[in-house]
Structures are given as structure tokens and as C-alpha cells.
Nucleic acid binder design. Sequence first.
DNA 1: GATACAGGCTTGT
DNA 2: ACAAGCCTGTATC
Length: 156
Amino acid sequence: MNYQNYSSIFTTPVEKIGIRIVDDTLTNINWLPDNVPILDSNSSFSNKIQSLILQYLEDGRPLPDIPMTLTGTAFQLKVWNALKNIKMGHVITYGDLASKLQTSSRAIGQACRTNPVVIFVPCHRVVSASGIGGYMGKQNRINIKTWLLEHEKVNA
DNA sequence: GATACAGGCTTGT
DNA sequence: ACAAGCCTGTATC
């Protein structure tokens, strides 16, 4: 988990985003603090990913399936895969997803937290049964989650 | 509201 | 192998 070697770092309507590409597959997308310097895209593939993300965040265009290389435990891959099936503007609770995967709600949160590819794996569409839930383990990141949900609600 | 405990999984010792 | 910590849920006061 080092914060160098991004393929591209750019500004979005929400916050800065850094993406990492390996062998023309997407491996990481991260929200970055505002003081991180911009990094120009260094390949046509990362160019394409960058514009897909911007189209989604600016115009609400749904994200297509693109080549990704996700590294994680079998359980995490199962959860992330289930999340990709949630449609735009639709949400599910940790508990619902847990019973669907025959596990516990807390394990779902744990898997969502380590999601390496935000937005493409829509961990923000999983909410708590009694509220919005958390986002990336930090309270100050919840505004991103609510922003995305509002954004999708308008565009659904 | 708060507080306690159950619960599956990851990560660090 | 053990313990602690999680983007939780339910029960209970």
C-alpha cells in the first residue's frame, strides 16, 4: 500500500482521485487529500479510466465493466463481486448482504473497508440499518459517501 | 439516546 | 494460536 506509482492523479467534483494501472488493468482507485499534487495520466488506458470516472461523477453516466485485477482474500472478492451487481441509485444494508452471503454484517463492513477500487466497486451503496454507516473507517470521509448517494439518487 | 454482547473475518502479535 | 479491532445488528435499559 504505497502512495507512489499512481498512473494518474486528478481532480473531481468531489475530491482528488488517484488511480493505479498495471498491465492495462485497473488495480486501485483512491480518494486523496487535496494537498496531493496532480499527476498527468501516463497511458491511454489510464486516460480512458480517468474520463469514465469523470463522466460518472459529473454527468452520472453508469460505469461499464473494465479490466480489473483485484487482490484480496476469497471472501473479499466474493463481497466485492456482489457489490458490483448493485445498480445505480440502489442501496443495501450490511445485514441484508450478510444474510445473502451467509456471513455476518460486520464481516461485510470489514471487506468493504478494504475495497481497493472505490466507485467501480460501489461500497458506498452499502448502508447501515440505522443510518448511513461509515466510509473508509473515517468519519470525515462520510461526506463522500453521502455525496455519491445523492448524486446517484438524482441520476437514477 | 446509551450501553452491552453476539458475530464473521482480518491483521498483528 | 491468540487477541484485538472492524463502514454492524439486536436487545435492553
